[in-house]
Design a protein around this nucleic acid. Structure first.
Lengths: 149, 149
DNA sequence: TATTGTTATACTCTATAACTATA
DNA sequence: TATAGTTATAGAGTATAACAATA
């Protein structure tokens, strides 16, 4: 019976939608957008880096990064520093405010994980994680197959 | 140990991200965007209706609906028909092309459900659906609590 | 000649406010 | 006076193409 599969997918789509909406509201309460948070997250992972690197990490155009960094500079989360050896490039660098807010967002994620999964046993948690991992792998596979066409 | 909860949330966020991206590419291959598909979906559910009703269903501003309908008219998925009794209002109505593409998207969802969950037993499927349902309820609760503040 | 990031232009989604036509 | 949908304006995310400065 494929009805149950469709019900599962509907439920998964609903969770996807709700989590996206929740994330958006949450970061908005910190004066950010999801795209800017993604940039900041990569910045924290990579350390201060060129816009070219951020464009590659985010898989968006260099022009788009210019706009995102513009916004983050205007709102005080990053600065553009001069590159020590390449005068064409800039080093996007988090400000103290930028680092602090990313720490807050990380804390918020831990809190959310507790609120969502606090009642689950380790075994249940492992089952859920494994299933989600399988789903993620399959989606990646499907997207690669579609892209190949 | 809260590490497992965080791992589960990370995995859930990854699935959310991947599914959103996949959906966007999929509807783009049909000449649509996710926002326009959502409008079409409500239109199929409600039948031909006023833009006011679509604004309520989508929880966006009336102005936004004007733009979405403009796009769908330009690309041939809906028409604006005159309301039989209220000359202020329009009746947004799917074209044949609009109805056909929605049927195709629905078929695509069934296919995706099979590809993602075809290997799962009924029992596994039930477990997954129940867990996702719990998560959805909790997210809704959290958003209501945040909104109340 | 190739690369870095910009300006120029355009499209989509989203919002509020003012306005028109109609109820 | 209230409602339906529009124009006006604005901001955010996204893209390509042309261009400047630099490597």
């Amino acid at each position: 019976m494929s009805n149950r599969r469709i019900a599962a997918l509907d439920q998964l789509m609903l969770v996807t939608h709700l989590l996206s909406a929740d994330l958006e509201r949450y970061v908005a309460s910190h004066g950010l957008t999801t795209s800017r948070v993604q940039l900041l997250w990569h910045l924290g992972r990579l350390g201060p880096c060129q816009q070219r690197d951020l464009a590659a990490a985010l898989e968006v155009s260099p022009r788009n990064v210019t706009g995102l960094v513009d916004g983050l500079v205007d709102t005080g989360f990053v600065t553009r520093e001069s590159h020590p050896t390449d005068r064409r490039a800039t080093l996007v660098t988090p400000t103290r405010k930028g680092s602090q807010v990313m720490q807050e967002l990380a804390d918020g994620q831990v809190e959310l994980a507790g609120q969502l999964f606090g009642e689950l046993s380790d075994r249940q948690l492992a089952t859920l994680t494994r299933m989600l991992c399988d789903i993620a792998q399959k989606v990646v596979l499907l997207m690669e197959q579609e892209a190949a066409r």
